[in-house]
């Protein structure tokens, strides 16, 4: 895990976002844009964390409830929520989060390995934790979070 954390974080910039009282971050390079919440069209036979699809300038963009995807309670989207449009593999995906909090530049020193206590779900996507100004930010690997997206693109 230490090795993975190192290899993934050599002086890169991250976007931090908040879901309830927890903070997470993803690589800024995978983020295409950040936009406000618009009601999504529900998809039949979709996993519960897929809120539906929205129109992103002509493209059909699936919206993922990050709160539910990360094992927390379902979000109740309001106009104050934001959607992070991220690129995962060949596909774009919209991540619904409570707010975007920060842009961080981190080096390997800032990254600590994921604690052993985390459950399997968390272990799958967490690539380490950051301690910044007394906050704890969990670094997420989007490819691990949506492996199906990537495998279908391939």
């Amino acid at each position: 895990m230490t090795y993975a954390a190192k290899s993934l974080t050599q002086g890169r910039e991250l976007i931090a976002f908040r879901i309830e009282d927890q903070e997470f971050c993803v690589n800024i390079m995978s983020v295409r844009e950040i936009r406000g919440w618009t009601p999504a069209t529900p998809m039949p036979h979709a996993p519960q964390y897929v809120l539906g699809v929205i129109n992103l300038r002509g493209a059909v963009l699936p919206i993922i409830d990050m709160s539910m995807r990360l094992g927390m309670k379902p979000a109740e989207p309001t106009v104050r929520h934001v959607i992070i449009v991220a690129q995962v593999g060949q596909k774009a995906v919209g991540l619904l989060v409570d707010a975007v909090s920060d842009i961080l530049t981190v080096t390997d020193d800032n990254v600590q390995p994921t604690p052993d206590i985390a459950n399997e779900t968390a272990k799958n996507y967490a690539r380490g934790i950051l301690a910044i100004e007394g906050r704890m930010i969990c670094m997420i690997e989007l490819e691990a979070l949506f492996p199906h997206v990537e495998s279908e693109a391939a």
């Binding site: 039949p44 699809v53 059909v60 774009a92």
Partner: peptide, 24 residues
């Protein structure tokens, strides 16, 4: 509009479109 471009094939749904109100 293709659903498969960013999502997956959904049984029962052929594709998507965008209506006048901007919704899918």
């Amino acid at each position: 509009k293709s659903l498969e471009a960013n999502y997956t094939h959904v049984p029962g749904i052929a594709a998507a479109t965008i209506l006048g109100d901007g919704r899918v």
